[in-house]
Design a protein around this nucleic acid. Structure first.
Lengths: 245, 245
DNA sequence: CGCATACGGAACGGTCCCGTATCGGAACCT
DNA sequence: AGGTTCCGATACGGGACCGTTCCGTATGCG
């Protein structure tokens, strides 16, 4: 095991070496498994997907070659392509951003910025690849959805509910629809745009624009409606905060 | 030619039979090409993609089988998979909705409704498939983008510019960002959601919410800001129109 | 009618991949 | 040292697909 683990251990850093699949018994007798081979394979998959490969082009042979690993070593750790892809997904399951709860607006900005960051690099490449194969590999998509999407969606809904309680968000619209207003533009741009140096407007602008739209209308919503023209002026930049808790 | 053209000619209806690729000379001598085979192949590709097949699973043999057509017949009309896919994309190039220009809001609703409709059926399946393979097949994605995306994006921008001229849309934000606010939620939901009976909030709600957010803020934007609390009340349903021209 | 061409079907050689097996060597435990 | 296991590499039989070519048949033009 020399050629593996050549890349900067992006994954290896976040995973305890040795906890990879397979019968890694404690009282093992012979030569122990290389701690680097597993992460090297995961990393190779991510590198290939990032390079634009679709799932169909991800042959086990190519993965092993890219990882600098024998094919048998891959099969020794994973039962097949499905099990491997599952662990690739889990390797991307990083905790979400801290939401201090001080300001709904700031939490939304943090969430969207986190989403954009995750959707920018290899996360975006994987998301695109999986979206394209969601029909062909439903359980893989379900795994992705349950592992990476659901938690963040729940976090977003929690923030939005706080906004509703504060009176910053109108109650006469479905909360899921409002959530789509925030995440939709970020996801759509990540998925569809040139995704190589694509221009990105700041998350703060997006949040401010949408917040303006989902604010309770006068004479309708429940809570206290902030002053109608209290918004920031016309200037650019992420000027004043609005409606803190 | 008996088994082809079995499906309801969804594509054949919109294409002049006989204009399909290949040396279809006018003064041809022998047996003329079947007018049904070409559309049957296109239809088969769409059917397969709609059924969840990724590009890698779209073998020429499977396409021919699905179309009830010999493989040689496919190769007689198209030089290969790339040329075939190009024509599949073009078969989906339907004209956009009529934008009467009477109301910016109504035009936006019409555009989004059209977008959602196109992104709901086979258009959505093809979009997902292509997004997944955009890295592997850049020229195919470029063809899709130029054929189907660009025109509608330009139409949307034109409507938004009218909104700017009317004073319905603030000028201190990038128009592309504002366009993303409208299209992003629709596209993201079409691409990511369960896409089998996925719940959809009406386009009108989306337009009204976003329009509220992109309205010029008091004391800043150029045009006349419509009355602050002029919006519709809290009720559900697609109530009153706002800010007609 | 007769010919030219298209048709569906089947086969070709070639390439790639799968999942398994086997190799010589290397690493680790007892 | 000896035994055991993992390592990368390579080879295997089986299968799918590619793009082409050849059938025997069907069909329309001149």
């Amino acid at each position: 095991m020399t050629r593996a683990a050549a890349g900067s251990g992006t994954v290896a850093d976040s995973v305890v070496a040795g906890e990879w699949p397979g019968p890694a018994a404690p009282g093992r007798r012979g030569r122990p498994r290389s701690a680097a081979a597993g992460p090297a394979v995961i990393e190779a998959v991510l590198r290939l997907v990032e390079g634009g490969a679709s799932l169909g082009e991800l042959s086990m042979e190519r993965i092993a070659r890219e990882a600098g690993v024998g094919k048998a070593t891959v099969y020794r750790r994973w039962s097949g392509r499905t099990a491997l892809m599952r662990d690739v997904l889990r390797s991307l399951d990083v905790p979400g951003p801290p939401l201090d709860g001080a300001s709904v607006r700031d939490d939304l900005v943090a969430l969207l910025e986190f989403l954009r960051g995750g959707a920018a690099g290899r996360g975006c490449a994987l998301l695109r690849t999986l979206v394209g194969h969601a029909g062909a590999q439903p359980e893989l998509w379900a795994e992705y959805h349950d592992t990476l999407v659901r938690a963040r969606h729940e976090a977003l809904l929690a923030v939005l509910r706080r906004g509703v309680a504060n009176g910053e968000i109108r109650t006469d619209r479905d909360l899921e629809t409002i959530a789509d207003l925030f995440t939709g533009p970020v996801l759509a741009r990540a998925l569809l745009q040139e995704w190589h140096g694509a221009p990105r407007s700041p998350s703060a602008d997006l949040v401010d624009l949408v917040l303006e739209g989902v604010r309770p209308v006068a004479g309708a919503g429940a809570g206290s409606t902030p002053g109608c023209s209290a918004g920031l002026g016309g200037g650019a930049g992420g000027a004043g905060r609005r409606g803190a808790v």
